[in-house]
Lab assay of single mutants.
Amino acid sequence: KWTITVQGEEAIKWAIKVAEARNLDYTVHIDGDQAHITIE
Score class of each variant (00 low, 15 high):
18 V>A: 11
39 I>A: 02
3 T>C: 13
38 T>S: 06
15 A>Q: 03
35 A>G: 05
37 I>P: 00
7 Q>W: 14
29 H>N: 08
1 K>Q: 10
2 W>R: 04
34 Q>W: 15
4 I>R: 00
8 G>H: 03
9 E>Q: 11
22 R>K: 14
31 D>K: 08
32 G>I: 03
19 A>V: 14
5 T>C: 10
38 T>A: 05
28 V>S: 02
28 V>H: 02
23 N>H: 12
23 N>T: 03
28 V>L: 09
23 N>V: 03
26 Y>M: 03
39 I>W: 11
5 T>W: 08
25 D>Y: 13
15 A>V: 14
4 I>D: 00
22 R>N: 15
3 T>P: 01
33 D>F: 08
20 E>V: 08
16 I>P: 00
28 V>Q: 01
7 Q>V: 14
17 K>P: 01
33 D>C: 11
24 L>Y: 13
36 H>K: 10
26 Y>N: 00
17 K>A: 15
33 D>H: 08
9 E>D: 10
36 H>N: 05
5 T>A: 05
35 A>L: 06
1 K>M: 09
32 G>D: 03
21 A>K: 08
6 V>E: 00
20 E>K: 06
17 K>T: 10
14 W>E: 09
23 N>A: 11
13 K>I: 10
26 Y>H: 02
10 E>Y: 07
31 D>P: 01
31 D>S: 09
40 E>G: 11
39 I>K: 00
4 I>K: 01
7 Q>H: 12
30 I>H: 07
19 A>M: 15
30 I>D: 02
10 E>R: 10
10 E>W: 11
29 H>P: 00
31 D>N: 09
7 Q>G: 04
2 W>K: 03
2 W>M: 05
2 W>Y: 11
37 I>D: 00
19 A>S: 04
9 E>H: 12
23 N>W: 05
17 K>V: 07
30 I>P: 03
33 D>A: 08
28 V>I: 14
14 W>L: 09
5 T>R: 06
35 A>N: 03
26 Y>Q: 00
20 E>H: 05
25 D>M: 14
39 I>G: 02
11 A>R: 11
19 A>L: 15
17 K>Y: 10
37 I>A: 01
22 R>G: 14
15 A>C: 06
23 N>S: 07
36 H>G: 02
7 Q>A: 08
20 E>M: 06
22 R>S: 15
39 I>D: 00
3 T>R: 06
7 Q>T: 14
38 T>R: 06
39 I>F: 14
7 Q>I: 14
31 D>F: 11
39 I>T: 02
21 A>D: 15
37 I>C: 02
6 V>Y: 03
20 E>G: 04
36 H>A: 06
29 H>K: 12
27 T>N: 06
37 I>N: 00
1 K>G: 08
12 I>Y: 07
39 I>S: 02
23 N>I: 04
16 I>W: 02
11 A>T: 05
40 E>A: 13
15 A>K: 01
17 K>E: 13
9 E>Y: 11
14 W>V: 05
15 A>M: 10
14 W>P: 00
4 I>N: 01
39 I>P: 00
8 G>S: 05
9 E>A: 13
19 A>D: 02
13 K>A: 13
9 E>S: 11
7 Q>F: 13
9 E>V: 12
29 H>Q: 13
31 D>I: 12
2 W>G: 02
38 T>F: 07
15 A>E: 02
10 E>M: 11
32 G>F: 05
36 H>D: 04
18 V>D: 12
24 L>M: 06
1 K>H: 07
4 I>W: 12
27 T>E: 09
6 V>D: 01
24 L>P: 04
18 V>W: 15
34 Q>K: 14
29 H>T: 13
36 H>M: 12
30 I>E: 03
31 D>L: 08
3 T>A: 04
7 Q>L: 11
31 D>E: 12
40 E>T: 15
2 W>Q: 03
11 A>L: 10
3 T>F: 08
29 H>W: 13
13 K>N: 09
37 I>Y: 02
34 Q>M: 14
32 G>N: 05
2 W>F: 11
28 V>D: 00
22 R>E: 14
33 D>K: 07
13 K>P: 01
12 I>D: 00
4 I>E: 01
15 A>L: 12
12 I>R: 05
2 W>N: 03
34 Q>T: 14
20 E>L: 06
17 K>N: 09
17 K>L: 13
25 D>W: 13
23 N>K: 12
7 Q>K: 14
34 Q>F: 15
15 A>I: 14
2 W>A: 03
14 W>A: 11
1 K>T: 12
3 T>Y: 08
11 A>K: 08
3 T>D: 03
2 W>P: 01
34 Q>A: 11
40 E>V: 14
36 H>S: 09
7 Q>M: 13
28 V>P: 00
30 I>A: 04
8 G>L: 05
40 E>W: 15
23 N>D: 10
3 T>W: 06
35 A>V: 11
33 D>Y: 06
13 K>V: 07
7 Q>S: 12
32 G>Y: 03
23 N>P: 10
6 V>Q: 01
28 V>F: 05
36 H>F: 13
17 K>H: 12
15 A>D: 01
25 D>G: 10
10 E>H: 09
33 D>I: 07
11 A>Y: 08
12 I>S: 01
19 A>H: 02
37 I>Q: 00
10 E>N: 10
30 I>K: 07
40 E>L: 15
16 I>S: 01
1 K>S: 11
31 D>A: 08
5 T>P: 01
32 G>M: 04
1 K>A: 10
3 T>M: 09
25 D>R: 15
29 H>F: 13
38 T>D: 03
18 V>K: 06
25 D>K: 15
29 H>R: 14
16 I>V: 08
